[in-house]
Design a protein around this nucleic acid. Structure first.
Lengths: 158, 158
DNA sequence: AAAGATTGAGGGGTCAATCTTG
DNA sequence: CAAGATTGACCCCTCAATCTTT
């Protein structure tokens, strides 16, 4: 039998690209339409909400996201502008700055969190069996380990 | 037993986000470093290469990609600038324009195609069993159908 | 008026250079 | 000088307005 193209994996790859685009667009749209919060803002609110004191160093925040330092600076700029985050200089190392959730930021995440989780369940989880979920997580973990060998620098995002 | 959070699906969702980001970055980087072709250009070259006469109407190209019409106009601008694509007015409907692959564009895709397929295999396919590939494709198809009910407007991308 | 395509204005990201502190 | 963070220049995409043709 001649070597045939790897149809199954290509189908998986193609469906992955389309599903990712559809999911991110849809979830972003729902957050924006309901609460005026873009998905990028949500990612920041989530990390700060979970962090001790609701705050993180810019450095730390950068390493946990898929952005460069300047990208995170500008992203936090917008959250500060919107009153959801404030900046504080680090007392022990004056080079560093904290991004800290304001009360309004905490409140925003308390509304956005459940909404977003519901969206993930509705648009993704609902269509995926437990077995499929496990298979995906295992396969994707191997993929990421193959690209970032020594432990992914990226944190998990909800 | 109390209702527990849907850990398995959340793990799958998180790994999906990270793997997608890692894969797209890596594949884009390899195409750019080797041939100077960004992944977005590749997506256009692929579609035109497969189309009859190596050409498509702008409208048609737009509907096959995850872009707005203006985004595709500007993307094609760059490909024209690079000499890989040329524009031709449609003779039967003068409102329309074709984007057509130049000989240099054909040559570019003939180099980029195998390289990109090899990258997909190396970074994605290699880590995914046939069963996992099938599971993904099936699950993602249900996901996309849930978001774009009446047949996805988007075409498959390699 | 509607359809195909483009353009101007603006949002949001990267890279390299810069400023401040260790 | 190196590290943390920001800024300036620039790239790429979207939305709304525009132009041409049907």
């Amino acid at each position: 039998m001649p070597t045939k193209p790897d149809t199954k994996r290509m189908r998986a790859w193609q469906s992955l690209l389309i599903a990712h685009s559809a999911l991110v667009s849809q979830l972003d749209h729902e957050l924006q339409a309901t609460l005026g919060i873009p998905l990028q803002w949500y990612e920041v609110l989530l990390r700060l909400y979970r962090a001790p004191g609701n705050r993180m160093r810019m450095q730390e925040l950068t390493q946990s996201m898929f952005f460069t330092p300047s990208g995170v600076t500008r992203l936090v700029d917008r959250l500060v502008q919107a009153g959801l985050v404030k900046r504080e200089q680090c007392p022990t190392d004056k080079r560093g700055f904290f991004a800290t959730l304001t009360p309004k930021g905490v409140e925003a995440f308390r509304e956005a969190g459940p909404l977003h989780l519901k969206g993930i369940q509705q648009h993704f989880g609902r269509h995926v069996s437990e077995e499929e979920a496990d298979a995906m997580a295992d396969a994707f973990t191997r993929v990421v380990d193959g690209i970032y060998p020594a432990g992914s620098p990226r944190e998990l995002a909800v």
